[in-house]
Design a protein around this nucleic acid. Structure first.
Lengths: 223, 223
DNA sequence: CATTTGTTTTGAACATGTTCAGTTCCATCC
DNA sequence: GGATGGAACTGAACATGTTCAAAACAAATG
C-alpha cells in the first residue's frame, strides 16, 4: 500500500492517541508511562514512538484534535453573537467548556506555573521566598504616598509582585540584544502603571473598583 | 560530631551546589546530569541526593541563596529611594541585575512557558494552532464596532489571545468548586476590559497611547 | 509464485533521575 | 584505647523516556 489511503496505520495511530489520553486522564500526565500506554493500546513501545515523536507529542496531537473539534462551534458563535462582549464570552467560554473534561490533564502540563509543582513561584514550597519578596513591595508602598481604594489597597503588594514575575518571565525568554525588549517593557509598563495610579482617584474610574475588589477578595481571600 | 557546628558537611553541600550551578550555566539545566555534577564535585551521586532532594532542589537552593545575597542591597534601595517609582525601579532592577549572569539557567526552568519548549503556547511548533486561534479574535473584533488607537489596534487580537491564555492558566490551577474563581475572574475582568475600552477614546487616556504603542511594536514587531 | 521495496512493528539497549541497603568516618563515652 | 551510634557517603539497582537495528508485513512487480 504505497499510494492509496492508509486506513490501517491511521487506525493504529488513533488508537494509541485515544488510549494515551485515557491513561493521562486516569493517572495524570507525569504518572502515565509510555510502556503502560503502549501495552494498553496492544502495541510495543516502539510503535508509539513511530507515530508520536515523544510523550509530549501526544499532548500536542490532543490540542490539534481539540481545535479541529471546536471549529464548527466557534464558527457558529462568531456568526450568531451580536456584539463584542457576546463574541468574547462565546469564544473563551466554549473553550472552557470543551476542555472541561480534560482540565486535570492540562493542569499537568503547565509545569512550573502550576502551584503544585514545587519549583513554581506560586507553590507552597516557595512561599517563604515569595512572602519575603512581597514584603519588600509592601514597604515600597508604605513609604510612598500612594492612594488606593481600600478594597484594592491590601492586595497591591501582591499585585506588584505578580507584575514583577511577569517581567521576569518575559526576561528569561527575551533573546533581544542585552534584553532590550525587557528593558522597554519594564520602562513603559511602569510609566503606564504610574499614570494609571494618578488617574485612579478620579471618579471616572469608580466603576472599576467594585469588580476589581470582588475579584481580588475571591482570589486572594479576605484581607 | 553530634551537636556542635558541622563545618565539614556544610562545605560539601556548598561545593555540590556551586559545581551544579556551574554545570547548569555551561550546559543548561536539562542537559546537565546528576552523575556529571556529582563527579565534578568529587562525590558519588548518592551524596548529591543526601544534601538535595532532587535536581530541582538544587535550583531551589540557588533561589534561596540569591535572595539572601540580595537582602542588604534591597534594604539600601528601600531606605534611600525617594518615591514610589524609584523604589519599584530599584527593587525590580536590582533583581534583574543580580540574576543577569544566570539568565540562561533560569530560562531553562520556565519550562512550558518558555517559547523554545515545543509544548509552550508561544513556541514555533504551536504557531499554527495559535494563529488560528488569534484569527478568531480578529474576527470577533472586526465584526464589532470597537474603536482603538491605530498604534494599538493591529495588536489587539493577539492581546485578547494573551488574555485568554492567562484565563486558561488560572483555570487549570483553579481548585475552587466548579472553578468558580475562574468564572468570577473571567466575568469581572471582561467587565473591566469593556469599561476600559469605552474610556479608551477619551483624551484623558491619551498619554497611555504612545508608550503602549511603542511597547507593542517592539514586542510583536512592525504591524 | 518469488522478489523487491517501502511501511509498520518489535523489543532489547541506552541515558538519566532517583532510591536504598550498605559502608566509612568520626566525635563521644566507658 | 576500644566500643558505639549517628552523620556522611558509596555505588549498584530501579523506573522511565527514547532510540534503533532488525523483523514482520503488505503491496506492487516481474
Amino acid at each position: 500500500m504505497t499510494r492509496a489511503a492508509i486506513p490501517k496505520s491511521e487506525a493504529t495511530r488513533a488508537r494509541i492517541l485515544d488510549v494515551a489520553l485515557g491513561v493521562f486522564r486516569e493517572r495524570g500526565f507525569a504518572q502515565a508511562t509510555m510502556r503502560e500506554i503502549a501495552a494498553a493500546a496492544g502495541v510495543a513501545v516502539g510503535a508509539a514512538y513511530y507515530y508520536f515523536d515523544s510523550k509530549d507529542a501526544l499532548v500536542m496531537a490532543f490540542y490539534q484534535q481539540a481545535q479541529d473539534e471546536m471549529a464548527t462551534e466557534v464558527e457558529r458563535i462568531l456568526s450568531s453573537a451580536r456584539n463584542f462582549e457576546e463574541r468574547l464570552r462565546g469564544l473563551i467560554g466554549h473553550k472552557f467548556a470543551h476542555f472541561g473534561p480534560n482540565r486535570a490533564l492540562m493542569g499537568a502540563l503547565s509545569a512550573h506555573v502550576d502551584p503544585r509543582h514545587p519549583l513554581s513561584p506560586f507553590s507552597r514550597e516557595t512561599a517563604p521566598i515569595r512572602d519575603r519578596d512581597i514584603a519588600y513591595f509592601a514597604r515600597a508602598i508604605a513609604d510612598s504616598k500612594i492612594k488606593l481604594a481600600p478594597t484594592i489597597q491590601p492586595y497591591f503588594p501582591r499585585l506588584l509582585w505578580l507584575y514583577q514575575m511577569g517581567l521576569m518571565l518575559f526576561w528569561v525568554c527575551d533573546d533581544s540584544p542585552s534584553q532590550a525588549r525587557t528593558q522597554l517593557l519594564f520602562d513603559r509598563t511602569l510609566q503606564m502603571l504610574l499614570f494609571t495610579l494618578k488617574l485612579a482617584s478620579l471618579p471616572l474610574l469608580r466603576p472599576l473598583y467594585r469588580p476589581a475588589g470582588e475579584l481580588l477578595r475571591s482570589i486572594y481571600g479576605e484581607p
